[in-house]
């Protein structure tokens, strides 16, 4: 297992290097003069020179690449063009909020999705099955920014209540903090719950038809034991794959949902950075999120062995 993990981490190196390369040449891809685009009107020549130097536009891309990688190894992801502050500390304050929402949404989405999928499979072609499936298809079709907006707007119009839009940090008051991120996480989890439900229904139906399930039933196990102990674990591998693939999507979704619920996570930081063309910030966000998703994929791959001991980690 450890050897497999080490092998996979080494295998990630080229991907991380490509990611960093893309982040570095990003600025070269801007059509026209990037500095002109960023400068306020009548900016001083000194400011212009400082900006050019900060973006490293005077240097060829390979040198900037080496510098960026070296800086990253020292924990330096560059400075914001506007606040002149280093990007990393600010990011480390915000990234946890976004990842917290995304992970909470993953937990809720998979739990609800699997539960509904299993119920749907056990009650195949009954009213319950149809009801759950219809809701799931609707859940896939509604964009999460629309759901988020409606969750904010409609209770206020119908019942005159609005969700608290003032953010509270975890260290300030963990309970209130949880209450505040719960609603965005719930909104974000809907899409995932719907796709997990559809997939776990399909795989459960597949597994339930197999011989060992009949054996388990024949030897007199209670149906809950058969479902959870025998069927579920074997039906989970495709579901885990799906969930792993969706983590990247959920982080993107979190950016949108955060902006609706006014939560100071990565979303608002990124949107501000984009408005201000603050390239070092955008670069750092791209690099950090890409690496996080790669890490999640590694964990997902390793979890297969736990679900199915037949899968050898080599």
């Amino acid at each position: 297992m450890l050897r497999y993990a080490a092998k996979r981490v080494v295998g990630m190196v080229p991907t991380v290097l490509i990611l960093l390369f893309l982040a570095v040449i990003m600025i070269n891809l801007i059509p026209g003069d990037a500095v002109d685009l960023m400068m306020e009107e009548n900016a001083s020549p000194e400011r212009r020179a400082a900006l050019e130097e900060q973006l490293g536009l005077g240097e060829p891309a390979p040198i900037r690449y080496v510098k960026y990688v070296a800086g990253m190894l020292r924990g330096d992801l560059g400075d914001s063009l506007w606040s002149r502050e280093p990007v990393l500390p600010e990011l480390l304050k915000r990234v946890p909020v976004t990842i917290e929402i995304a992970l909470l949404a993953t937990l809720i989405g998979t739990a609800v999705g699997i539960l509904l999928g299993v119920i749907s499979a056990l009650r195949q072609d009954t009213f319950i099955d149809y009801a759950i499936r219809s809701v799931a298809i609707a859940g896939i079709s509604l964009p999460n920014f629309a759901i988020a907006t409606f969750v904010v707007v409609m209770p206020a119009i119908w019942w005159g209540i609005s969700p608290t839009l003032r953010y509270v940090g975890f260290t300030e008051d963990p309970f209130t903090h949880f209450k505040i991120i719960l609603v965005p996480a719930l909104v974000l989890s809907l899409n995932l719950a719907a796709s997990v439900m559809r997939l776990s229904r399909t795989t459960m139906l597949d597994v339930l038809r197999q011989d060992y399930i009949r054996t388990a039933q024949a030897k007199g196990l209670r149906s809950i034991q058969v479902t959870v102990g025998h069927a579920l674990k074997n039906a989970m591998i495709p579901v885990i794959t799906l969930t792993g693939l969706q983590v990247a999507y959920l982080i993107g979704g979190s950016v949108i949902v955060e902006s609706v619920f006014v939560i100071p996570g990565l979303g608002r930081y990124l949107i501000t950075a984009i408005d201000q063309r603050d390239y070092p910030v955008i670069q750092a966000i791209v690099v950090l999120l890409g690496m996080f998703v790669m890490l999640v994929n590694l964990l997902v791959d390793m979890s297969y062995a736990w679900f199915d001991p037949r899968i050898r980690m080599t």
Partner: peptide, 23 residues
């Protein structure tokens, strides 16, 4: 490996970055 890299980026963030770079 290039495809891996692109797939590791949240789709929406990749899209936002491209649009910001190109205008």
């Amino acid at each position: 490996r290039f495809v891996d890299t692109i797939q590791a980026l949240p789709g929406l963030i990749l899209l936002m970055t491209i649009v910001v770079i190109l205008g």
